[in-house]
């Protein structure tokens, strides 16, 4: 298989020492195994995430993503932009679409970018890592790379909001996307295709500003996984991962539950299944340790 080269947009939360630094580590391990080369966009900036709108408004927010695209077009010319973070992907792709549809906005954005000596063309494709896996790599290839099948594990695929809507993965439904379950199956674990909370909102950024309201929703997500007999939850989104994993103590306190459900990235699952070490799979980044994965990795 030919090497795939991608212009990589890691995003703030994946930076070293940030909430989803473990995502980056495992994603890189996964990419090594799949012969994907990630070329980081030089000097990228924050995309504004899903909450930036409140401070930034429309054009400034779009300008953030336009700058990233412009940098990619300049330095990683000809490569598709890929993001691992749902919000990064969404913001960037949304900006591209908006600037494409609205001519005035395109001009205004470029007027702003010229202040930084940049020019936005809007030619690069903007994709999510999952799209690359599903469309370019394929489940069969993933299967063929598995050295340590994750046998005996039952994993709830929690897709969440922004990897799924409004763009989603081609050919999947918004209400019940299947690709994450297929990844779970491909690495030898058991999936839960009927997992009710698969696309339930976790509160997103409102987990900070409206903690009680968000935690009520997170509780439902974890509870449904338990009810379906899941050993752990897997997700493609850093905010989902963080929200569902790190508030379990608070939820237990508020609702008298005893949740202790590990929440991992698909890239962690794949890294372990591809035979890489626990560290390379970033299992040390778990707040709630994924013991069963650890055991398989250590075998």
């Amino acid at each position: 298989m030919a090497k795939i080269e991608l212009s990589f947009y890691p995003g703030c939360s994946s930076q070293k020492g940030a909430t989803s630094s473990n995502y980056l580590v495992s994603a890189q391990t996964m990419c090594e195994e799949l012969d994907i080369q990630l070329n980081e966009i030089p000097d990228w900036n924050c995309c504004g995430a899903s909450i930036g709108y409140g401070g930034g408004g429309e054009l400034p927010r779009l300008a953030l993503s336009a700058r990233n695209i412009a940098l990619s077009e300049e330095h990683n010319s000809g490569q598709e932009i890929v993001a691992t973070c749902a919000a990064c992907w969404l913001s960037t792709r949304e900006a591209k679409e908006r600037l494409h549809e609205d001519e005035q906005m395109f001009k205004d954005a470029n007027a702003a970018l010229s202040e930084a000596g940049l020019k936005y063309k809007g030619e690069a494709n903007v994709r999510h890592m999952v799209e690359v896996l599903v469309e370019d790599i394929g489940f069969d290839t993933i299967k063929s790379k598995v050295k340590k099948p994750l046998e005996g594990l039952k994993i709830a695929g929690y897709v969440g909001c922004q990897t799924n809507r409004p763009f989603g993965i081609a050919g999947e439904s918004f209400e019940n996307p299947q690709y994450l379950d297929k990844i779970v199956e491909s690495v030898g674990a058991e999936s839960i295709p009927g997992y009710e909370k698969k696309v339930q909102c976790c509160g997103g950024a409102l987990a900070f500003s409206e903690p009680e309201k968000s935690q009520e929703m997170i509780k439902g997500i974890i509870e449904a996984a338990y009810d379906n007999g899941a050993d752990m939850i897997v997700t493609p989104c850093p905010l989902c991962q963080a929200n569902v994993e790190i508030y379990q103590d608070n939820i237990n306190e508020a609702y008298g539950t005893k949740f202790n459900m590990p929440v991992v990235y698909y890239s962690t699952l794949m890294s372990v299944a591809f035979g890489r070490s626990a560290k390379e799979a970033a299992l040390d980044g778990q707040v709630i340790p994924a013991k069963q994965l650890q055991e398989i990795a250590d075998k």
Partner: peptide, 14 residues
């Protein structure tokens, strides 16, 4: 500085 100038410009236009 380029970044901040860009955002400032965008805010002005908006």
């Amino acid at each position: 500085s380029g970044f901040q100038k860009m955002v400032k410009k965008a805010q002005e236009i908006e």
